[in-house]
Design a protein around this nucleic acid. Sequence first.
RNA 1: GUGGGCGUAGCUCAGCUGGUGGUAGCGCCAGGUUGUGAUCCUGGAGGUCGGGGGUUCAAGUCCCCUCGCUCACCCCA
Length: 425
Amino acid sequence: MAVPAFQTSPGMRDILAPESARWRRFTQVFADVVEGAGYRQIISPIMEDLGVFTRIGEATDVVTKEMYDFVDKGGRHVALRPELTASVCRAFVEHRPVTPWKAWYSGSQFRYEKPQRGRYRQFDQVGIEALGADDPYLDVEVIALGWEFYRRLGLQQVRLLVNSLGEPDDRARYVEALRAHFAAAGDQLSEQSRVTLTKNPLRVLDSKRREDTTFVASAPTIDEFWSDAAAAHFEAVRDGLVALDIPFTVELKLVRGLDYYRHTTFEFQGLTLDSAQNALGGGGRYDGLVESLGGPPTAGIGFALGLDRTLLACDDEGTFPAPGATVDAFVVDTTGGREALVITAELRAAGLSADRAYEQRSMKAQMKAADRSDAALSIIVGTDELAAGTVTVRPMRGGEQSAVARADMVTTIQHLLSIHQNTEA
RNA sequence: GUGGGCGUAGCUCAGCUGGUGGUAGCGCCAGGUUGUGAUCCUGGAGGUCGGGGGUUCAAGUCCCCUCGCUCACCCCA
Protein backbone atom coordinates (compact mmCIF):
# COMPACT_ATOMS: atom_id res chain seq x y z
CA MET A 1 0.00 0.00 0.00
CA ALA A 2 1.22 3.42 -0.91
CA VAL A 3 1.20 6.20 1.64
CA PRO A 4 -2.30 7.68 1.58
CA ALA A 5 -2.53 11.24 0.33
CA PHE A 6 -4.33 13.07 3.06
CA GLN A 7 -6.86 15.73 2.27
CA THR A 8 -8.75 18.18 4.41
CA SER A 9 -12.04 16.93 5.81
CA PRO A 10 -15.10 17.70 3.68
CA GLY A 11 -16.19 21.28 3.92
CA MET A 12 -12.90 22.36 5.48
CA ARG A 13 -9.98 23.89 3.65
CA ASP A 14 -6.59 25.54 3.81
CA ILE A 15 -6.38 29.25 3.17
CA LEU A 16 -3.00 30.08 1.66
CA ALA A 17 -1.42 33.41 0.79
CA PRO A 18 -2.45 35.76 -0.63
CA GLU A 19 -6.03 34.85 0.32
CA SER A 20 -4.99 34.46 3.95
CA ALA A 21 -3.80 38.08 3.95
CA ARG A 22 -7.15 39.09 2.58
CA TRP A 23 -8.88 37.31 5.48
CA ARG A 24 -6.64 39.12 7.92
CA ARG A 25 -7.50 42.48 6.37
CA PHE A 26 -11.19 41.60 6.34
CA THR A 27 -11.14 41.12 10.09
CA GLN A 28 -9.03 44.23 10.55
CA VAL A 29 -11.46 46.43 8.62
CA PHE A 30 -14.34 45.03 10.64
CA ALA A 31 -12.51 45.62 13.91
CA ASP A 32 -11.81 49.23 12.89
CA VAL A 33 -15.49 49.85 12.19
CA VAL A 34 -16.93 48.34 15.37
CA GLU A 35 -14.14 49.36 17.76
CA GLY A 36 -14.85 52.87 16.59
CA ALA A 37 -18.39 52.41 17.87
CA GLY A 38 -17.42 51.15 21.32
CA TYR A 39 -17.58 47.41 20.70
CA ARG A 40 -14.78 45.41 22.31
CA GLN A 41 -13.49 42.04 21.25
CA ILE A 42 -14.46 38.80 22.92
CA ILE A 43 -12.49 35.64 22.24
CA SER A 44 -14.54 32.68 23.37
CA PRO A 45 -13.86 28.93 23.28
CA ILE A 46 -14.36 27.07 20.05
CA MET A 47 -16.54 24.53 21.81
CA GLU A 48 -19.06 24.68 24.60
CA ASP A 49 -21.35 22.43 26.58
CA LEU A 50 -23.98 21.17 24.18
CA GLY A 51 -26.70 22.79 26.26
CA VAL A 52 -25.46 26.28 25.41
CA PHE A 53 -26.48 25.69 21.82
CA THR A 54 -29.66 23.71 22.30
CA ARG A 55 -31.07 26.95 23.76
CA ILE A 56 -30.90 28.34 20.23
CA GLY A 57 -34.06 26.38 19.62
CA GLU A 58 -34.96 22.73 19.56
CA ALA A 59 -36.75 23.18 16.24
CA THR A 60 -33.80 24.68 14.36
CA ASP A 61 -31.78 22.61 11.95
CA VAL A 62 -28.65 24.15 13.41
CA VAL A 63 -29.41 22.28 16.61
CA THR A 64 -31.18 19.15 15.40
CA LYS A 65 -28.98 18.01 12.55
CA GLU A 66 -26.03 20.31 11.97
CA MET A 67 -24.26 20.13 15.29
CA TYR A 68 -20.69 18.87 15.48
CA ASP A 69 -21.10 17.32 18.92
CA PHE A 70 -19.31 14.56 20.80
CA VAL A 71 -18.61 13.26 24.26
CA ASP A 72 -15.12 14.15 25.47
CA LYS A 73 -12.81 12.02 27.60
CA GLY A 74 -14.30 13.45 30.76
CA GLY A 75 -17.77 12.42 29.74
CA ARG A 76 -18.93 15.94 28.93
CA HIS A 77 -21.26 16.32 25.98
CA VAL A 78 -19.75 19.21 24.02
CA ALA A 79 -20.22 20.78 20.61
CA LEU A 80 -18.13 22.87 18.25
CA ARG A 81 -19.87 26.21 18.15
CA PRO A 82 -22.38 26.48 15.27
CA GLU A 83 -22.75 30.21 15.86
CA LEU A 84 -21.47 32.74 18.37
CA THR A 85 -24.49 34.55 19.73
CA ALA A 86 -25.20 31.78 22.22
CA SER A 87 -21.55 31.74 23.32
CA VAL A 88 -21.55 35.49 23.87
CA CYS A 89 -24.73 35.24 25.94
CA ARG A 90 -23.21 32.43 27.97
CA ALA A 91 -20.17 34.63 28.59
CA PHE A 92 -22.46 37.46 29.65
CA VAL A 93 -24.14 35.24 32.21
CA GLU A 94 -20.79 33.94 33.42
CA HIS A 95 -19.10 37.34 33.85
CA ARG A 96 -22.01 39.77 34.27
CA PRO A 97 -20.33 42.77 32.68
CA VAL A 98 -21.76 46.26 33.11
CA THR A 99 -24.54 46.95 30.62
CA PRO A 100 -24.92 47.94 27.92
CA TRP A 101 -22.28 45.42 26.99
CA LYS A 102 -21.09 45.71 23.41
CA ALA A 103 -18.87 42.94 22.07
CA TRP A 104 -17.49 41.92 18.70
CA TYR A 105 -15.95 38.68 17.55
CA SER A 106 -14.46 36.87 14.61
CA GLY A 107 -13.70 33.24 14.11
CA SER A 108 -14.61 29.84 12.80
CA GLN A 109 -17.90 28.11 13.38
CA PHE A 110 -18.99 24.62 12.49
CA ARG A 111 -22.11 23.11 11.00
CA TYR A 112 -22.35 19.58 9.72
CA GLU A 113 -23.96 20.22 6.34
CA LYS A 114 -23.34 19.19 2.77
CA PRO A 115 -20.70 21.64 1.56
CA GLN A 116 -21.38 23.96 -1.30
CA ARG A 117 -19.80 27.06 -2.74
CA GLY A 118 -20.13 29.69 -0.03
CA ARG A 119 -21.21 27.10 2.51
CA TYR A 120 -18.60 25.15 4.38
CA ARG A 121 -18.60 22.99 7.46
CA GLN A 122 -15.99 25.23 8.98
CA PHE A 123 -16.85 28.79 8.10
CA ASP A 124 -15.85 32.18 9.39
CA GLN A 125 -18.00 35.02 10.57
CA VAL A 126 -17.50 38.39 12.15
CA GLY A 127 -20.21 39.85 14.32
CA ILE A 128 -21.31 42.08 17.14
CA GLU A 129 -23.70 41.69 20.05
CA ALA A 130 -25.15 44.42 22.27
CA LEU A 131 -26.67 43.20 25.52
CA GLY A 132 -28.72 44.94 28.16
CA ALA A 133 -30.38 47.75 26.23
CA ASP A 134 -33.91 47.62 24.84
CA ASP A 135 -33.77 50.60 22.53
CA PRO A 136 -34.89 50.59 18.89
CA TYR A 137 -32.16 53.07 18.04
CA LEU A 138 -29.64 50.50 19.20
CA ASP A 139 -31.14 48.17 16.61
CA VAL A 140 -30.49 50.91 14.07
CA GLU A 141 -26.91 51.39 15.25
CA VAL A 142 -26.24 47.69 14.89
CA ILE A 143 -27.67 47.56 11.38
CA ALA A 144 -25.81 50.73 10.44
CA LEU A 145 -22.48 49.23 11.50
CA GLY A 146 -23.05 46.27 9.22
CA TRP A 147 -23.97 48.62 6.42
CA GLU A 148 -20.86 50.72 7.05
CA PHE A 149 -18.65 47.62 6.97
CA TYR A 150 -19.89 46.66 3.51
CA ARG A 151 -19.29 50.23 2.40
CA ARG A 152 -15.68 50.07 3.66
CA LEU A 153 -15.14 46.91 1.68
CA GLY A 154 -16.37 48.72 -1.40
CA LEU A 155 -19.49 46.66 -1.90
CA GLN A 156 -22.38 48.37 -3.71
CA GLN A 157 -24.71 45.53 -4.58
CA VAL A 158 -26.05 44.81 -1.11
CA ARG A 159 -29.69 44.92 -0.16
CA LEU A 160 -30.94 45.30 3.39
CA LEU A 161 -34.13 43.49 4.32
CA VAL A 162 -35.82 44.20 7.64
CA ASN A 163 -38.79 42.73 9.45
CA SER A 164 -40.23 42.42 12.91
CA LEU A 165 -41.34 39.15 14.42
CA GLY A 166 -43.17 41.04 17.16
CA GLU A 167 -43.27 40.05 20.79
CA PRO A 168 -43.38 36.37 21.75
CA ASP A 169 -47.18 36.40 22.00
CA ASP A 170 -47.52 38.10 18.61
CA ARG A 171 -45.24 35.58 17.12
CA ALA A 172 -47.13 32.67 18.69
CA ARG A 173 -50.43 33.87 17.31
CA TYR A 174 -48.88 34.38 13.90
CA VAL A 175 -47.47 30.85 13.92
CA GLU A 176 -50.96 29.49 14.62
CA ALA A 177 -52.41 31.52 11.77
CA LEU A 178 -49.73 30.17 9.45
CA ARG A 179 -50.38 26.65 10.60
CA ALA A 180 -54.08 27.04 9.76
CA HIS A 181 -53.31 28.65 6.43
CA PHE A 182 -50.91 25.99 5.22
CA ALA A 183 -52.96 23.15 6.67
CA ALA A 184 -55.86 24.31 4.50
CA ALA A 185 -53.70 23.72 1.45
CA GLY A 186 -53.68 20.03 2.30
CA ASP A 187 -51.57 17.80 0.14
CA GLN A 188 -51.25 20.48 -2.52
CA LEU A 189 -48.40 21.65 -0.32
CA SER A 190 -45.10 19.93 -1.01
CA GLU A 191 -44.35 16.90 1.06
CA GLN A 192 -41.32 18.50 2.68
CA SER A 193 -43.26 21.62 3.59
CA ARG A 194 -45.91 19.51 5.26
CA VAL A 195 -43.19 18.05 7.45
CA THR A 196 -41.79 21.51 8.14
CA LEU A 197 -45.28 22.69 9.05
CA THR A 198 -45.49 20.29 11.96
CA LYS A 199 -42.15 21.45 13.35
CA ASN A 200 -41.87 25.13 12.54
CA PRO A 201 -44.61 26.76 10.42
CA LEU A 202 -42.58 29.96 10.09
CA ARG A 203 -40.02 28.27 7.93
CA VAL A 204 -42.54 27.10 5.38
CA LEU A 205 -42.33 30.72 4.25
CA ASP A 206 -38.75 30.00 3.18
CA SER A 207 -39.72 27.20 0.80
CA LYS A 208 -38.43 27.64 -2.72
CA ARG A 209 -40.38 24.72 -4.14
CA ARG A 210 -42.71 25.60 -6.98
CA GLU A 211 -45.78 23.80 -5.54
CA ASP A 212 -45.59 26.04 -2.49
CA THR A 213 -45.22 29.47 -4.08
CA THR A 214 -48.92 30.34 -4.33
CA PHE A 215 -49.56 29.33 -0.74
CA VAL A 216 -46.56 31.25 0.50
CA ALA A 217 -47.71 34.30 -1.45
CA SER A 218 -51.22 34.16 0.00
CA ALA A 219 -50.07 33.50 3.56
CA PRO A 220 -50.96 35.99 6.28
CA THR A 221 -48.20 38.43 7.21
CA ILE A 222 -46.80 39.20 10.62
CA ASP A 223 -47.83 42.87 10.65
CA GLU A 224 -51.43 41.82 11.28
CA PHE A 225 -50.30 40.34 14.58
CA TRP A 226 -48.02 43.01 15.95
CA SER A 227 -48.92 44.39 19.37
CA ASP A 228 -48.90 48.17 19.71
CA ALA A 229 -45.55 48.02 21.43
CA ALA A 230 -44.04 45.84 18.72
CA ALA A 231 -45.40 48.07 15.97
CA ALA A 232 -44.01 51.15 17.72
CA HIS A 233 -40.58 49.53 18.13
CA PHE A 234 -40.43 48.64 14.46
CA GLU A 235 -41.66 52.08 13.47
CA ALA A 236 -38.78 53.62 15.41
CA VAL A 237 -36.29 51.29 13.73
CA ARG A 238 -37.49 52.27 10.28
CA ASP A 239 -37.43 55.92 11.22
CA GLY A 240 -33.87 55.59 12.46
CA LEU A 241 -32.73 53.94 9.24
CA VAL A 242 -34.28 56.76 7.27
CA ALA A 243 -32.52 59.29 9.49
CA LEU A 244 -29.19 57.64 8.66
CA ASP A 245 -29.98 57.44 4.93
CA ILE A 246 -29.71 53.68 4.91
CA PRO A 247 -31.90 52.19 2.19
CA PHE A 248 -33.94 49.16 3.22
CA THR A 249 -36.82 46.98 2.17
CA VAL A 250 -39.44 45.76 4.63
CA GLU A 251 -39.84 42.06 3.97
CA LEU A 252 -42.68 40.77 6.09
CA LYS A 253 -41.88 37.18 5.19
CA LEU A 254 -38.26 37.40 6.23
CA VAL A 255 -37.81 34.49 8.63
CA ARG A 256 -34.39 33.93 10.05
CA GLY A 257 -33.31 30.41 10.81
CA LEU A 258 -32.75 30.76 14.52
CA ASP A 259 -35.72 30.56 16.82
CA TYR A 260 -34.59 33.06 19.42
CA TYR A 261 -35.35 36.14 17.34
CA ARG A 262 -38.13 38.51 18.30
CA HIS A 263 -38.86 42.09 17.26
CA THR A 264 -36.31 43.30 14.73
CA THR A 265 -34.76 40.87 12.28
CA PHE A 266 -32.69 41.79 9.26
CA GLU A 267 -30.63 40.29 6.52
CA PHE A 268 -28.03 41.59 4.08
CA GLN A 269 -28.32 40.03 0.64
CA GLY A 270 -25.61 40.07 -1.99
CA LEU A 271 -27.30 40.95 -5.27
CA THR A 272 -24.45 39.61 -7.37
CA LEU A 273 -24.75 36.21 -5.72
CA ASP A 274 -27.64 34.73 -7.64
CA SER A 275 -27.29 31.34 -6.05
CA ALA A 276 -29.29 30.13 -3.09
CA GLN A 277 -26.39 31.23 -0.90
CA ASN A 278 -27.03 34.94 -1.22
CA ALA A 279 -27.32 35.86 2.45
CA LEU A 280 -24.15 37.77 3.31
CA GLY A 281 -25.17 38.26 6.90
CA GLY A 282 -28.06 38.74 9.19
CA GLY A 283 -29.18 39.27 12.71
CA GLY A 284 -31.86 40.52 14.97
CA ARG A 285 -33.08 41.09 18.48
CA TYR A 286 -33.07 38.17 20.87
CA ASP A 287 -34.43 39.43 24.18
CA GLY A 288 -34.85 36.34 26.31
CA LEU A 289 -31.87 34.31 25.16
CA VAL A 290 -29.75 35.36 28.12
CA GLU A 291 -32.54 34.36 30.47
CA SER A 292 -32.80 30.94 28.86
CA LEU A 293 -29.09 30.49 29.58
CA GLY A 294 -29.62 31.12 33.27
CA GLY A 295 -29.10 34.88 33.37
CA PRO A 296 -31.42 37.74 34.27
CA PRO A 297 -33.96 39.01 31.75
CA THR A 298 -31.74 40.88 29.32
CA ALA A 299 -32.35 42.55 25.98
CA GLY A 300 -29.98 41.65 23.19
CA ILE A 301 -29.34 42.38 19.55
CA GLY A 302 -26.58 41.58 17.11
CA PHE A 303 -25.56 40.27 13.75
CA ALA A 304 -23.15 37.87 12.14
CA LEU A 305 -21.62 38.40 8.71
CA GLY A 306 -20.20 35.53 6.68
CA LEU A 307 -16.65 35.98 5.52
CA ASP A 308 -16.75 33.59 2.57
CA ARG A 309 -19.87 34.91 0.95
CA THR A 310 -18.90 38.50 1.51
CA LEU A 311 -15.56 37.86 -0.20
CA LEU A 312 -17.38 36.14 -3.08
CA ALA A 313 -19.49 39.28 -3.41
CA CYS A 314 -16.28 41.36 -3.36
CA ASP A 315 -14.90 39.20 -6.17
CA ASP A 316 -18.05 39.82 -8.21
CA GLU A 317 -17.79 43.54 -7.72
CA GLY A 318 -14.02 43.62 -8.22
CA THR A 319 -13.42 45.22 -4.85
CA PHE A 320 -11.31 44.43 -1.79
CA PRO A 321 -8.70 42.33 -3.62
CA ALA A 322 -6.11 40.20 -1.88
CA PRO A 323 -3.18 42.47 -1.01
CA GLY A 324 0.13 41.83 -2.75
CA ALA A 325 3.07 40.70 -0.68
CA THR A 326 6.25 42.67 -0.92
CA VAL A 327 9.49 43.17 0.93
CA ASP A 328 11.88 46.12 1.29
CA ALA A 329 15.06 44.33 0.36
CA PHE A 330 16.17 40.98 -1.00
CA VAL A 331 19.74 39.98 -0.32
CA VAL A 332 21.66 38.21 -3.06
CA ASP A 333 24.87 36.60 -1.87
CA THR A 334 27.23 34.66 -4.14
CA THR A 335 29.88 34.15 -1.49
CA GLY A 336 28.19 31.29 0.31
CA GLY A 337 25.25 32.74 2.14
CA ARG A 338 26.82 33.78 5.41
CA GLU A 339 26.81 37.46 4.39
CA ALA A 340 23.14 37.26 3.41
CA LEU A 341 22.34 35.76 6.79
CA VAL A 342 24.04 38.61 8.61
CA ILE A 343 22.74 41.39 6.36
CA THR A 344 19.10 40.29 6.49
CA ALA A 345 19.33 40.13 10.27
CA GLU A 346 20.81 43.63 10.34
CA LEU A 347 18.09 45.01 8.08
CA ARG A 348 15.33 43.36 10.09
CA ALA A 349 16.76 44.71 13.31
CA ALA A 350 16.53 48.19 11.75
CA GLY A 351 12.84 47.63 11.15
CA LEU A 352 13.06 46.82 7.45
CA SER A 353 11.60 43.73 5.86
CA ALA A 354 14.21 41.56 4.21
CA ASP A 355 14.38 38.18 2.53
CA ARG A 356 17.09 36.16 0.84
CA ALA A 357 17.81 33.02 -1.14
CA TYR A 358 19.09 29.72 0.17
CA GLU A 359 21.16 26.75 -0.95
CA GLN A 360 23.87 28.84 -2.62
CA ARG A 361 22.10 29.13 -5.89
CA SER A 362 23.45 30.94 -8.94
CA MET A 363 23.28 34.69 -9.05
CA LYS A 364 20.74 34.52 -11.82
CA ALA A 365 18.55 32.26 -9.73
CA GLN A 366 18.88 34.55 -6.73
CA MET A 367 18.02 37.61 -8.78
CA LYS A 368 14.99 35.77 -10.06
CA ALA A 369 13.94 35.04 -6.50
CA ALA A 370 14.46 38.72 -5.68
CA ASP A 371 12.20 39.66 -8.53
CA ARG A 372 9.56 37.20 -7.43
CA SER A 373 9.61 38.56 -3.90
CA ASP A 374 8.54 41.92 -5.31
CA ALA A 375 11.33 43.55 -3.33
CA ALA A 376 11.94 47.26 -3.84
CA LEU A 377 15.70 46.75 -3.68
CA SER A 378 18.14 43.92 -4.08
CA ILE A 379 21.30 43.94 -2.00
CA ILE A 380 24.10 42.18 -3.85
CA VAL A 381 27.16 40.75 -2.18
CA GLY A 382 29.82 39.06 -4.33
CA THR A 383 33.50 38.50 -3.78
CA ASP A 384 34.26 42.08 -4.94
CA GLU A 385 31.91 43.64 -2.40
CA LEU A 386 33.10 41.34 0.34
CA ALA A 387 36.72 42.37 -0.29
CA ALA A 388 35.85 46.06 -0.50
CA GLY A 389 33.54 46.06 2.52
CA THR A 390 30.61 47.26 0.44
CA VAL A 391 27.28 46.03 -0.92
CA THR A 392 25.66 46.79 -4.26
CA VAL A 393 22.21 48.27 -3.87
CA ARG A 394 20.06 47.73 -6.91
CA PRO A 395 16.58 49.25 -7.30
CA MET A 396 14.34 46.58 -8.80
CA ARG A 397 11.76 48.90 -10.29
CA GLY A 398 14.04 51.23 -12.23
CA GLY A 399 17.08 53.33 -11.38
CA GLU A 400 20.84 52.93 -11.17
CA GLN A 401 22.50 50.49 -8.84
CA SER A 402 25.36 51.72 -6.69
CA ALA A 403 28.06 50.53 -4.32
CA VAL A 404 27.52 51.42 -0.69
CA ALA A 405 29.84 50.96 2.28
CA ARG A 406 28.57 48.36 4.70
CA ALA A 407 28.53 50.93 7.49
CA ASP A 408 26.17 53.16 5.48
CA MET A 409 23.96 50.36 4.19
CA VAL A 410 20.96 50.72 6.48
CA THR A 411 20.67 54.50 6.27
CA THR A 412 21.14 54.44 2.51
CA ILE A 413 18.42 51.87 2.11
CA GLN A 414 16.06 53.75 4.38
CA HIS A 415 16.70 56.88 2.34
CA LEU A 416 16.09 55.11 -0.97
CA LEU A 417 12.88 53.54 0.29
CA SER A 418 11.48 56.88 1.46
CA ILE A 419 12.22 58.46 -1.92
CA HIS A 420 10.64 55.50 -3.59
CA GLN A 421 7.49 55.80 -1.51
CA ASN A 422 7.21 59.51 -2.23
CA THR A 423 7.44 59.03 -5.97
CA GLU A 424 4.82 56.33 -5.84
CA ALA A 425 2.39 58.37 -3.75
C1' G B 1 -29.55 13.88 4.09
C1' U B 2 -31.79 13.54 -1.47
C1' G B 3 -30.92 14.31 -6.76
C1' G B 4 -27.91 16.23 -11.29
C1' G B 5 -22.92 17.56 -13.35
C1' C B 6 -17.66 17.11 -13.06
C1' G B 7 -12.55 14.94 -11.54
C1' U B 8 -6.19 14.49 -17.25
C1' A B 9 1.06 17.74 -14.67
C1' G B 10 1.66 22.97 -9.29
C1' C B 11 -2.42 25.97 -12.29
C1' U B 12 -5.84 26.43 -16.77
C1' C B 13 -7.14 22.85 -20.11
C1' A B 14 -6.84 19.36 -25.45
C1' G B 15 -7.72 14.18 -26.02
C1' C B 16 -13.62 12.81 -31.74
C1' U B 17 -17.89 7.04 -31.92
C1' G B 18 -12.35 2.58 -26.67
C1' G B 19 -7.04 1.19 -30.99
C1' U B 20 -0.06 1.95 -32.07
C1' G B 21 4.49 6.26 -27.74
C1' G B 22 -0.86 10.67 -23.02
C1' U B 23 -1.63 17.57 -25.23
C1' A B 24 -0.55 22.70 -25.00
C1' G B 25 0.00 27.21 -22.38
C1' C B 26 1.45 29.28 -17.72
C1' G B 27 4.56 28.14 -13.62
C1' C B 28 9.17 25.63 -11.97
C1' C B 29 14.60 24.25 -12.95
C1' A B 30 19.02 24.88 -16.08
C1' G B 31 21.77 27.03 -20.07
C1' G B 32 22.44 31.10 -23.75
C1' U B 33 24.82 35.80 -20.55
C1' U B 34 32.46 32.91 -16.41
C1' G B 35 28.42 38.41 -10.97
C1' U B 36 22.46 41.09 -12.30
C1' G B 37 15.81 39.74 -12.27
C1' A B 38 11.31 41.25 -14.99
C1' U B 39 11.89 40.50 -22.28
C1' C B 40 13.73 36.77 -25.83
C1' C B 41 15.80 31.83 -27.37
C1' U B 42 17.05 26.62 -26.19
C1' G B 43 16.71 22.48 -23.18
C1' G B 44 14.88 19.83 -18.80
C1' A B 45 12.16 18.01 -14.68
C1' G B 46 7.23 17.07 -13.45
C1' G B 47 1.37 12.58 -14.71
C1' U B 48 -0.92 6.32 -9.82
C1' C B 49 -5.35 10.17 -16.56
C1' G B 50 -9.04 11.10 -8.21
C1' G B 51 -8.93 5.76 -5.99
C1' G B 52 -10.61 0.46 -6.43
C1' G B 53 -12.93 -3.32 -9.21
C1' G B 54 -15.10 -5.03 -13.90
C1' U B 55 -16.09 -5.58 -19.48
C1' U B 56 -12.59 -6.12 -23.73
C1' C B 57 -7.45 -8.64 -27.78
C1' A B 58 -7.14 -3.32 -26.19
C1' A B 59 -9.97 1.70 -21.32
C1' G B 60 -8.05 8.57 -20.00
C1' U B 61 -12.33 7.00 -23.16
C1' C B 62 -17.64 1.89 -21.42
C1' C B 63 -19.96 -0.30 -16.52
C1' C B 64 -20.07 -0.66 -10.98
C1' C B 65 -18.32 1.02 -6.27
C1' U B 66 -15.73 4.74 -3.64
C1' C B 67 -13.48 9.64 -2.49
C1' G B 68 -13.57 14.74 -3.64
C1' C B 69 -15.49 19.17 -5.95
C1' U B 70 -19.72 21.52 -7.91
C1' C B 71 -25.15 22.80 -8.74
C1' A B 72 -30.19 22.29 -7.00
C1' C B 73 -33.38 20.85 -2.83
C1' C B 74 -32.93 21.46 2.48
C1' C B 75 -30.90 25.21 5.42
C1' C B 76 -28.15 29.25 6.17
C1' A B 77 -23.15 32.64 6.67
